[in-house]
Structures are given as C-alpha cells and as structure tokens.
Simulated scan of single mutants.
Amino acid sequence: MELSKRLMFIADYIDKCNSIIDVGTDHGYIPIYAVKKGLCERAIASDINKDPVKKAKLNVVLENVEDKVEVRFGGGLETVKKGEVDSVVIAGMGGNLIRDILEKDKNKLLSYKFMILQPAQNPEVLREYLYTNGYEILAEDLCLDEGIYYELFKVKKSNSVGLTELNPIFYEISPILLREKHKLMNSYLESKKEKYEKILRFIKDDSESAKKRKDEISDKLDYIQRFKLEVSE
C-alpha cells in the first residue's frame, strides 16, 4: 500500500507500539500500513462519518488485515476505552476540533505513550492548547504536500510539564522549528507573508476595528521578516 506524502509524514513518527487508534481514519490507510509494517500489533480505525467507515472496512478486507485492524464508527476518542490502546493518531481535521477531542477525553490521555496530531487547518489553535495545557512536546515537524503545508505535533500528556505561555506569534509559527531552522521554514514564512499582505490589501475601511486589524497584521509581518533573516543566517 502506497501512502500519500502527508500520510507517510505521519507514519514516519509512529514508534513501535502495541496498539494504536487513528481518529478520523477516512480510508483506514494509516492503521493498515502500521500493522503491515509491524509498527503495532493491532490498530483501530475510527471515523464519525459512515462513508469513510465503509471504505476503511473494505480496505481492511482487501489488504487482508481483518485480524489486526478493527474499524469503529464514532467520534473522537469515545470509540476506545481507557487503556485499550497505547498510542493515538488524529489527523485530517481542524486544530480546533483536535483540541476539543483531547479536552473531551482528557481522562484517557495519560495512558498514551504518544499522540501524533496533524491539523488540516488552524494549527496555531492546537499549538497554543498543547503549550498551555501540560503536554510534553516530543517533536514538531512540517511537510509540504501538493502545495499545502501540514504541521505535525508528536506529544505526550504529562502532569509534570509546566504551562508555557508565549508571544502569540509563536503559537502561529513554531519556536521549535524556527530554532531548528527547519528546511521548509523559509518557504513557509514566505507563504505566511504573502497571505498577510493579501489580507492587508483587502482591508479598505478606516474603522477602529479595521485599523486594529491592520496593526496586528503589520506586527506579524515584522516578525515574519525577522524570522526569515534568522533562518537564512
């Protein structure tokens, strides 16, 4: 089975484990790949929509892994009992929704060895939540697939990790990836710059709220320019 670049990006961060759940599994590709490659003994593919569940069940049969991959219908982590799996993948949905899924079932989170989270939108919302709610950041990464940047968080819930409150710009642009001078960071910053310059051009009125918004975006553009210089050094 061939995985897309985005899905392979996730799979590369799966440590060998006993069991894993893929929340929002769509076609079930990640769980199937994980068991076939020996990354885990068994896997659960879950989705809140019926069509992906049907597709995942079919793929499980076609790939001959019915004894190792179970497909479940339901939302978030509600499809697994506490301690039933030891690792988690949540991908393909917005950062807001991933945050809400974690918050809803936070009583289960300490039992997971790791959680791999890949938001499709609003990664800054998820990063702020992770940084300020006692998650140990095991890794952050960035990939570009078909013209879209995807951010990845590999985390573990911990009672011993303190809260990290940062300048809001660092929830939007990873301080870890900046420090590491990630190979995609320069082009990623350039895409952010273009996005904000476009927004500025569309703000035409002179109301107080518009002026405030312009100032906020101008501040972000100043940070981005500074970051670009730092990663180029």
Rank of each mutant, 00 (worst) to 15 (best):
K50R: 15
M115S: 10
I116F: 15
I98S: 05
P52F: 08
D141R: 07
L109N: 03
Q118V: 12
V61D: 15
K154I: 12
E84M: 09
D86M: 10
D105G: 08
I90N: 06
L152W: 14
I148T: 11
P52S: 08
L110F: 05
L109H: 00
L152E: 09
Y149M: 08
S111H: 11
G75D: 15
F73G: 01
A91I: 11
K55M: 11
V69R: 14
L62D: 02
N96P: 06
S160V: 15
V65L: 01
V125Q: 06
K108C: 03
E103I: 02
Y150E: 12
P119L: 03
G74N: 11
P168I: 15
K81W: 01
E136R: 13
P52H: 14
L97W: 15
N159Q: 12
L166E: 10
E78F: 00
V53I: 00
A139R: 12
E128K: 05
V65P: 06
G162T: 09
K108I: 02
S111F: 08
I98V: 12
Q121K: 11
N64Q: 13
L97C: 08
M115Y: 02
Y150L: 03
A139H: 07
E103Y: 11
F114R: 06
R127D: 01
E140Y: 08
L77V: 03
S87W: 04
N133I: 00
V85L: 12
K54G: 15
I137W: 09
R99D: 00
L77G: 01
V85H: 04
K113W: 01
Y131E: 15
E70P: 09
F153G: 12
T79Q: 06
V125G: 01
T132G: 09
